[in-house]
């Protein structure tokens, strides 16, 4: 184990996979000479050269399509979105080309591509640069969607994503890049896609969260422990395919569920989780599933308004208290 930042963990994952497999290459805006808009690809051009670290002009649809075409012939592109907000320009390529190719070719052409970059709420970047983008992708059969919360997950999941024979949407977070944590240096260390992790065991309530919201939930759980509420924290890590089994297992134990998500709540991750918890574990529930979500508004710039947009610790704590008191206990 070594202590490193989330950013360094991603960088290490890229290096290890590029050393391991000559088919892996990195492509995107400013990934080479500039060393990454957020420095995730720092040093890669120096180590691997311009054949494998490809700077692109600003043409998201074009270079994403090029990545997909290259993947059809067996390369393993890792395409960086400078931020995931710009992936909307490549949405057609991702949804109609990458996700559908294997199916509509009757299993002849799979697309082993990773599309990665930062997404989610950032600091005062306003409406167009501060969005939770995963919702646009996890609806689509054929895509896998990953949101890694810790440096260790960032490394282990990115390596799995690169080795996966399918298109993987891998959304990091600008706010998490400097976060430090323990990361295995073993190049064989990977975390399989599709497995949730129980970050903390608890008995009274299951809180499901990822990325920045998980860090907030951890603080809330610490505080509520003092009130005698024992919170179990579950991080899905992969949003599609979702590890329903781990989540349901936790619900069967705690009988109460709160989902926290940064994005606008309407038809969000919380809606989906609350639906499948109801379908699979209705009889186990002692209270209705609660959702604590981003406000159904675009992201404002003003600091005070921005605070109102994403779930606060107070709101998370209030929801947990509500479900825990729902049956009068």
């Amino acid at each position: 184990m070594a202590v490193m930042t989330y950013r360094e963990a991603l960088n290490l994952a890229l290096r290890e996979e590029m050393r391991r497999d000559p088919r892996v290459f990195v492509m995107g805006e400013e990934v080479g000479l500039y060393e990454g808009a957020y420095k995730v690809t720092q040093g890669l051009l120096k180590e691997f050269g311009p054949r494998r670290v490809v700077d692109t002009p600003i043409a998201e649809s074009g270079f994403t399509g090029i990545g997909i075409g290259a993947a059809m012939l067996g390369l393993r592109p890792v395409v960086e979105m400078m931020t995931f907000n710009f992936a909307l320009l490549a949405l057609d390529q991702i949804v109609n080309s990458a996700a559908k190719m294997y199916y509509m070719s009757g299993g002849q052409f799979n697309v082993p591509i990773v599309i990665r970059g930062p997404g989610g709420p950032a600091a005062q970047l306003a409406a167009q640069h501060s969005q939770s983008m995963e919702t646009y992708f996890y609806h689509v059969p054929g895509l896998k969607v990953v949101r890694p919360t810790t440096p260790m997950d960032a490394k282990g999941l990115l390596k799995s994503a690169i080795r996966d024979p399918n298109p993987v949407i891998f959304i990091e977070a600008e706010t998490l890049y400097p976060v430090k944590g323990e990361v295995p240096e073993d190049p064989d260390f990977v975390i399989p896609l599709g497995r949730a992790v129980v970050r903390r065991e608890g008995t009274d309530v299951t809180v499901i969260a990822y990325m920045g919201m998980m860090y907030r939930a951890i603080e809330v759980a610490d505080e509520l422990a003092k009130e005698g509420i024992s919170v179990e924290l579950v991080d899905p890590r992969t949003l599609r395919p979702m590890d329903v089994e781990t989540i349901i297992g936790s619900v069967r134990k705690t009988h109460r569920v709160v989902v926290v998500e940064a994005g606008a709540g309407f038809a969000g991750m919380g809606s989906e989780i609350s639906a499948f918890v109801t379908e699979h574990a209705f009889d186990d529930l002692d209270a209705p599933v609660e959702r604590v979500t981003g406000a159904n508004a675009p992201m404002p710039y003003a600091r005070n308004l921005e605070k109102l947009k994403t779930p606060t610790k107070d709101k998370i704590a209030a929801a947990i208290r509500r479900v825990c008191n729902a049956n009068g206990s």
């Binding site: 075409g69 290259a70 390369l75």
Partner: peptide, 15 residues
Amino acid sequence: AHLPLAAGAAFAIKY
């Protein structure tokens, strides 16, 4: 949409 895919296949051939 398949014009970038063609360039991508060409990229792989050259790579």
